[in-house]
């Protein structure tokens, strides 16, 4: 029988995982209406042999089966060191409330591996695990994954995420009539092992240009890669919401133009975005404190609420203006 598939566990053949990294792309589904659960499930059936997961509480959330991609290439590294690695990457797509489409790819890298390629059966039995040739310089590779010194030909999880996203967006069931224009955001993330006895932590979350974000986590042993990926999907989703709403309020020129114009520009926010905010709805219990840290600094929900309040105040003012004789 094949070895255990749980990427968080240590086995004799597969050494200890020390680094997880991934990239998740988030965008508005290019469709006029929000999809129903059934429509979403049809859209995300990326594999015929495995079923789509659907959950309705606390919001409608549909997740595609995991799609493995075999890789044999160099890992990105900040120093330019060539670290060859072999294994499989896990990709998946999700749809939240029939509106927000995400596609992500991630993999776990073990501390070391043999200096030669094993038979493929070994890697196939460990979906989402990549083994380096020799010892993994984890800090160097983590920095490389976050973007420093990327070279063509290195393992590019962004490309795998992007391929998954475009595959879904090409679906002919979509009418390409989204209620508003918006950008795709990309979150690159790495999770290194926390020091013994330390709990999980979010070391940094930064915004780069062109919708690129970077996050670095520390995770204690035993937290599965899928949980880290789940947290990062959730972060990416809320970052997209915030980015998109900030941009929409900015574009509406709220306060400087005729209130009615601003309302027309903000209407899609009320119709399609404001009910989607639900931080940590699907984050595993041990990782919830990371969200709480983000709420303190920089204060995701605080900023969201201020924007929502501005929009509601504007609506109230316009209504009041209408009621005046």
């Amino acid at each position: 029988m094949a070895g255990p598939a749980n990427t968080g566990e240590r086995t004799e053949q597969s050494p200890e995982p020390v680094l997880v990294f991934g990239e998740v792309h988030t965008c508005l589904l290019q469709h006029g209406q929000a999809l129903t659960g059934r429509g979403a499930a049809d859209l995300l059936r990326l594999r015929a042999d495995e079923r789509v997961r659907l959950s309705e509480r606390p919001n409608l959330y549909v997740r595609s089966p995991d799609v493995p991609t075999g890789v044999d290439c160099h890992l990105p590294s900040a120093s330019g060191a060539k670290v060859r690695a072999v294994g499989t990457v896990t990709a998946r797509a999700t749809l939240t409330e029939g509106r927000l489409l995400q596609a992500g790819a991630h993999c776990t890298v073990t501390a070391d591996g043999p200096g030669r390629r094993r038979r493929w059966g070994h890697y196939l039995a460990r979906p989402g695990v990549v083994e380096p040739f020799g010892t993994l310089p984890e800090r160097d590779v983590a920095d490389g994954c976050l973007g420093a010194g990327r070279r063509p030909g290195d393992l590019d999880l962004g490309a795998i995420a992007d391929r998954t996203l475009t595959r879904v967006l090409r679906d002919r069931a979509l009418d390409n009539q989204p209620p508003f224009k918006s950008q795709v955001t990309r979150l690159r993330w790495v999770a290194l092992r926390a020091a013994d006895g330390e709990g999980p932590s979010l070391e940094r979350f930064t915004l780069a240009g062109d919708g690129l974000r970077m996050a670095e986590l520390r995770l204690p042993a035993g937290i599965p890669a899928a949980a880290a990926a789940g947290l990062c999907h959730d972060l990416a989703l809320h970052d997209w919401l915030l980015t998109t709403l900030v941009r929409m309020v900015e574009r509406s020129r709220l306060g400087s133009t005729d209130g009615r114009d601003a309302l027309t520009a903000l209407r899609p926010a009320v119709d399609h975005l404001m009910h989607l905010w639900m931080p940590a709805a699907r984050v595993d219990q041990p990782l919830r404190p990371l969200w709480e840290a983000l709420e303190r600094e920089p204060g995701f929900t605080r900023q969201w609420q201020i924007l929502v309040q501005r929009i509601r105040d504007q609506l109230a003012l316009q209504t009041a203006a209408h009621l005046q004789p």
Binding site: Q30, L169, R170, N176, K181, Q183, V184
Partner: peptide, 13 residues
């Protein structure tokens, strides 16, 4: 080309 135009259509007026 299809992917590019779909992507840009989603982002740009």
């Amino acid at each position: 080309g299809i992917d590019l135009f779909l992507r840009l259509h989603s982002e740009f007026d």
